[in-house]
């Protein structure tokens, strides 16, 4: 999951700092622990994504072995391919949680207390 997250949220300079990525991955794990049968679907989508990327890029190289710029390029190709749904599934989960981090929310101009930390609590 981290391999994909680092690419999705990378700016021109590299991935977000390690603390934020650690928080994200911990929270994704907690999410997966609580969602019953759906856990298998998410893990399946993630495996699928790892499996199709070398095919779509025709490089034979696995996502995990790619540098971050290579991963960005590879996942961009996946997004254009028949396998876009796999990336969307993984990206949706990552984005929902990532932008709940108040710093990540702020970076995109999102300031709604009620949808990150709850106002007044």
């Amino acid at each position: 999951m981290r391999v994909v997250a680092e690419a999705v949220f990378s700016d021109g300079e590299g991935p977000p700092d390690a603390d934020r990525m650690d928080w994200l991955i911990r929270d994704v794990d907690d999410f997966l622990e609580h969602i019953g049968d759906s856990r298998r679907s998410v893990i399946g989508a993630l495996f699928g994504l790892h499996a199709v990327t070398p095919v779509v890029t025709r490089s034979g190289q696995s996502l995990a072995r790619m540098s971050i710029p290579e991963r960005i390029e590879a996942l961009t190709k996946v997004e254009e391919s028949f396998a876009s749904g796999l990336l969307l599934a993984v990206k949706a989960l990552l984005c929902i949680i990532y932008y709940e981090h108040p710093d990540a929310g702020r970076e995109i101009g999102f300031d709604a207390g009620c949808l990150t930390e709850v106002a007044g609590s």
Partner: peptide, 18 residues
């Protein structure tokens, strides 16, 4: 819908996503 969901449904990875 939550901003994270909006962001996820727009195409793009890395700088394009941001």
């Amino acid at each position: 819908i939550p901003p994270g969901v909006i962001a996820a449904t727009m195409k793009g990875v890395g700088p394009k996503h941001l």
